[in-house]
Structures are given as structure tokens and as C-alpha cells.
């Protein structure tokens, strides 16, 4: 994927030069290994700032709402599905957007790499299917790229953008041999008490910084329910019940909208996998309504429509 960089710059430069767009939203090289920073460029000569590699995990759909400019944005499979969701929900206008599709082979999980590496990492590079980690003490380690992908990327079945105006490369082959719901089935199999303890343990480290919410392209409410004061839905302290209420309710707000882009988990400073919550709802939507979020512009979301043949299994 690292070879995309040249193409990314080339496209950005052209779009700015011929005034097709006012700004291009992409990534620039970060100051940390395995980190890139979302950025915008408005001048063609700045196009060389842009990069593309396995560290572009942040969902750029997040940066489109509330802007007035005509924008070109780079979009992986998940980003593109969130852009579709934004368009369907009237948060962005299709005709103000040039979507540059980036067929994706998954993003690197920096925490996974760090935890499997002894010593401090100085730099990380990618060559083909390998991820090469250079250590500060001079040594180096090599990983098979597939072994160090983000959890959601490893199980992703929509790597190609679903909507685009042009592509930076040929479409990639979609994964068909993955068991997308294994972790959720495991939780579903737990009895009530065990499940409760599982979630207690999962959410215990939460510091309520709301990085998950803010990293999520779906969380664009002007005032989030946790911030409302009239009425005040939940307490602001570190009480476990308030923390749980935040996570559970946020997950429900994303039901039928979440594309499992992994931004929430990636952003969490204390490493909580809150995707286990959103994924369960993703699974339910899929099984009950054969619904996958953000796949097409002309379909209303599952929870947004009523059909006489909707399943009513929950009604006894």
C-alpha cells in the first residue's frame, strides 16, 4: 500500500491545480512511528506532504461535516461507507465531494506491534507483505503484515471503497475466508452474570475522555447526551454505572450505522475494545435485516424504515 503515496500526491495536485476542489483531506507523515496525522492541503505545491501507508487508520469521514469548501477526500472501504452514511443522513452533499477511493489491505495496529516487540521502536516500515520494525538499540524485527492488522481490518469484508470518483489503485480482492462474528458469538454464549462481569472488566479502565465518541464519524450530534444538562441523563463522575451507560447508549446510537471502521478502539488511550458493543448491533442488523451500513446511497438504514415483513422475533 505504501506505493499509493505517489498516486495520492499526483491526484491531489491535479485536483487542486485544475480547481476541481478547494481542499484535499488526507494524511501526512506523523511524528511517531505508526502514526499519521490527518491534514488538509489547499495548494497544489503542498501535495508532497501527503502520504499513504498502513498507518492511515483514522476515519477521514470525520472531517467532512460542517465544512463549506468543495473537498476531495481519500477514502478506504470503511471511510467510504461512512461517507455514504453522511450523505444519506444529509450531513454532507455528494456534489461538494470528490471521493478518491483507496483500496485497502488493512491498517497496522500500533499497540499490537508495540506489545509484540521487545524494546523501544524507532521506526516502522512496510515492504510488500512485511512490516519491519527498527528498534532504538539497533536491532530489528519483522512481522507478517496480516499478523499485525487492527482487529477490524483483519476481519474486514469491504476493503474496497463502495463509492468513489477515482481510484488510487486497482481494487483489491475482498476477504471471504474470515469469521467476522466469532468474538460476538463468544459473548452471546455467556450467561447473564458472566456477561455482566465481562463488560465490567472491559470498561473498567475508561477515563471518560470521550476519544471513542469523538473519533467516530457517526457521533456528530451538536450536544451529546452525556453533555446534556437539561435533563441530565447521566452523572459525570467515575461511577461504573455512568461509565457503562455512556458506552452502551453510544453503541445503540450507532446501531445500523456503524461500519466497524475501528476508529473508536484505535483512539482509546486506555485500550478498550468498545467495538465489541457496536459489533453486536452490527451483527443483529445483519441477521435481522440483512443490513450493512453505508453500502449504497439509495437505501434507507435498517432502523430508519419499516417493512411489513420485518422480523418480530423479539415480540413474544
Amino acid at each position: 500500500m505504501i506505493a499509493y503515496t505517489d498516486k495520492v500526491r499526483q491526484i491531489a495536485r491535479r485536483l487542486l491545480e485544475d480547481c476541481s476542489v478547494e481542499m484535499v483531506i488526507g494524511f501526512r507523515k506523523g511524528s511517531q512511528p505508526m502514526m499519521n496525522e490527518p491534514c488538509f492541503i489547499k495548494k497544489a505545491e503542498d501535495a508532497d506532504q501527503l502520504v499513504w501507508d498502513g498507518n492511515c487508520g483514522i476515519n477521514l469521514a470525520n472531517y467532512l461535516t460542517g465544512r463549506k469548501e468543495k473537498i476531495a477526500v481519500f477514502a478506504k472501504g470503511c471511510d467510504s461507507r461512512n461517507i455514504v452514511t453522511h450523505i444519506v443522513e444529509n450531513k454532507v452533499q455528494r456534489d461538494r465531494l470528490v471521493i478518491i477511493g483507496v483500496p485497502c489491505t488493512g491498517m497496522i495496529d500500533k499497540r499490537l506491534v508495540a506489545s509484540q516487540t521487545e524494546g523501544e521502536i524507532e521506526a516502522v516500515s512496510e515492504t510488500g507483505d512485511k512490516v519491519v520494525v527498527k528498534l532504538k538499540d539497533g536491532g530489528s524485527t519483522e512481522f507478517d503484515r496480516r499478523q499485525v492488522l487492527q482487529g477490524n481490518c483483519a476481519l474486514c469484508v469491504h476493503r474496497n471503497p463502495v463509492i468513489y470518483d477515482e481510484l488510487v489503485a486497482d481494487l483489491v480482492e475482498e476477504q471471504t475466508d474470515v469469521d467476522h462474528w466469532a468474538d460476538i458469538r463468544e459473548i452471546e454464549a455467556m450467561d447473564v452474570e458472566k456477561r455482566r462481569r465481562f463488560f465490567e472488566d472491559l470498561l473498567a479502565p475508561c477515563i471518560r475522555c470521550y476519544a471513542c465518541r469523538n473519533a467516530c464519524p457517526l457521533c456528530y450530534c451538536p450536544t451529546c447526551f452525556v453533555d446534556e444538562s437539561r435533563p441530565q441523563w447521566l452523572g459525570k463522575g467515575q461511577d461504573q454505572i455512568d461509565v457503562h451507560t455512556f458506552h452502551f447508549l453510544r453503541a445503540f446510537h450507532c446501531a445500523g450505522r456503524c461500519t466497524d471502521c475501528g476508529a473508536c478502539q484505535r483512539a482509546c488511550p486506555v485500550g478498550i475494545n468498545m467495538r465489541l458493543l457496536t459489533k453486536k448491533l452490527e451483527k443483529d442488523c445483519f441477521e435481522l435485516y440483512q443490513w450493512e451500513a453505508g453500502m449504497a446511497l439509495d437505501q434507507r438504514p435498517a432502523l430508519d424504515t419499516y417493512k411489513p415483513d420485518d422480523p418480530e422475533g423479539f415480540i413474544k
Binding site: 483514522i58 472531517y63 475522555c209 476519544a211 465518541r213 473519533a215 459525570k236 488511550p269
Partner: peptide, 23 residues
């Protein structure tokens, strides 16, 4: 500020940040 998602991570991890709310 462009990339910022306005989460509170930096301020919550920071040893010198002290702002608080009363509830």
C-alpha cells in the same frame, strides 16, 4: 488544529492539566 477530534485524551493524561468541573 485540523486533525484534532476534541477528545480529552491529552488533557486527561497530562500531569500538568488541572481543570475541573463541579457537579
Amino acid at each position: 488544529s485540523f486533525a484534532c477530534i476534541n477528545c480529552g485524551t491529552c488533557t486527561y493524561l497530562c500531569p500538568t492539566c488541572w481543570c475541573f468541573d463541579i457537579q
